[in-house]
Simulated scan of single mutants.
Amino acid sequence: MTSLRQCAIGTVKDLRAADCLTLEGEESVITDQTIIVKIIKTDEHEIYANQLKATWTHPTGDTKISQIQEDKNGDYFVTGKFTNPGVCKLDVSADDEPVNQSPMTIKVEEGRLVNTIKINTTSIRDVVKCEDDSLLVSCETNEMLKYKQSGEYIGTVTLPQGVLVNRMYKMKNGNIAFSDCNVNTPIRICNMNGQLIKTISVEAKNTPRRIHVDETSNVLYAAAGWSNSCVYMFDMNNGKTIKTIGSQGTKEGQMNNVSDVTLTNQGHLLVLESECFGTGTSRLQLFNNEGRFIKDLVEAGDEDGKVKYPRAVVVDEDDNIIISSQHKLQLFSSDGTFIKRIDKPEDGINNPEGLSIISYHQRRLAVANYGDKTVKIFNY
């Protein structure tokens, strides 16, 4: 179908398929990032995939015809990925006529340090993204500091005296689950007014410090390091222990000095361990959703692709794994294959603590850098 007879008051006009479509996508991406450009219908005009054609022009000047894909809602989109920095171009036509916004140009940049936010505090433990895209920073005090991603200070969430906020998890309802640096202190939940509203993990035999919340199943995972290392599963409704995973030791499936915990997109458990006293036991272990050990994904070592004194682990929308180690940030695939180092030595990563993915589509990461008391933001 190439045209539509559209009736308006007093007029009859032909409407081309190309006139009913426009392109929507990012202005810039980074190398090796999957680009998604949507083909948006601007008019109630039936469009078929065989009417559409898409061609990418690479930063190198090479061209490639791209497949038009359809999502579950019946809308069309085009994807691309480029390894070279520069400017790429996407031409989309309907019945050999260019659609609106075609050709679209997109800047392809190398992954890089975007911004460094100096935090006016003596310690920094974690960073999470809020609903308004601002960043909330924990500093081992009863205050959580709020900043814009540009670095502008916004305000403070103040909790009761004596609280020492350590690691945080920002939930979809706006509340924050957090661990406490005080010994024998349970995980608690507060709102953005600083009011404590729930206590979790009172049954834990060892103080949990690293946390992750599965909001789908309403389960909180909490890692206890040093002696009696393990991962607890707590029911978020009643705060009680569901299961304890792991036992003390360095063999497969056992745990030693757990430094962080998170879930894959399939619900499998990732347990990050950091060596203590030069034992060389740093590693990333994978468990299934019932807590049974599957395999080691990443091993200990100084070279790229291995970890030494790792502190935090997160998983992005593509199931890639990001690990902060003593002096670097590394990206791995879901099976533990090393992809690349995210930072450069001159970026100043030094004993990073918490990590937070602050934009899935733009592949943007915030790091609580303990060594210089900053939050560093990277495109990766």
Rank of each mutant, 00 (worst) to 15 (best):
Ser102Asn: 13
Lys107Gln: 14
Tyr76Gln: 07
Val78Asp: 08
Val99Ile: 11
Lys107Tyr: 03
Glu97Ala: 06
Thr79Ala: 08
Lys81His: 07
Phe82Cys: 08
Thr79Gln: 07
Lys64Val: 14
Thr63Asn: 01
Glu97Val: 05
Lys64Met: 14
Glu70Leu: 05
Asn73Gly: 12
Lys72His: 12
Pro98Lys: 03
Lys81Phe: 01
Asp62Ala: 13
Tyr76Lys: 14
Val78Leu: 10
Asp75Leu: 07
Pro98Cys: 06
Gln69Met: 15
Gly74Met: 02
Lys64Ile: 14
Asn84Asp: 09
Asn100Asp: 11
Thr105His: 13
Asp71Tyr: 02
Gly86Val: 09
Phe77Gly: 08
Lys72Val: 13
Val108Ala: 04
Ile68Glu: 03
Pro98Asp: 08
Ala94Glu: 08
Asn100Ser: 14
Ile106Ala: 06
Ala94His: 07
Asp62Thr: 10
Asp71Glu: 10
Gln69His: 06
Asn100Leu: 12
Thr60Ile: 11
Thr63His: 00
Thr83Lys: 04
Val99Cys: 10
Pro103Val: 10
Lys72Pro: 00
Gln69Ile: 05
Glu109Asp: 12
Asp95Lys: 01
Met104Tyr: 14
Asn100Gly: 02
Gln69Phe: 01
Ile65Pro: 00
Pro98Glu: 02
Ile68Gly: 02
Leu90Lys: 15
Phe77Ser: 09
Lys89Gln: 14
Pro98Ala: 01
Asp75Gly: 04
Thr79His: 06
Val78Met: 10
Thr60Asp: 14
Asp75Gln: 15
Val108Ile: 15
Pro98Gln: 05
Thr105Lys: 15
Thr63Tyr: 00
Tyr76Ser: 06
Ser66Thr: 05
Ile68Ala: 02
Gly80Trp: 06
Asp91His: 09
Met104Gln: 11
Asp91Asn: 12
Lys81Gln: 15
Lys107Ala: 11
Val92Glu: 10
Lys64Ala: 15
Pro85His: 11
Thr105Val: 09
Val99Trp: 02
Val99Asp: 09
Ser93Val: 13
Asp96Leu: 11
Thr60Ala: 15
Glu97Arg: 08
Ser102Phe: 08
Val99Gln: 11
Lys81Val: 12
Ala94Arg: 04
Gly86Trp: 03
Gln67Trp: 07
Tyr76Val: 03
Ser66Arg: 12
Glu70His: 01
Asp91Lys: 12
Asp95Tyr: 01
Asp62Asn: 15
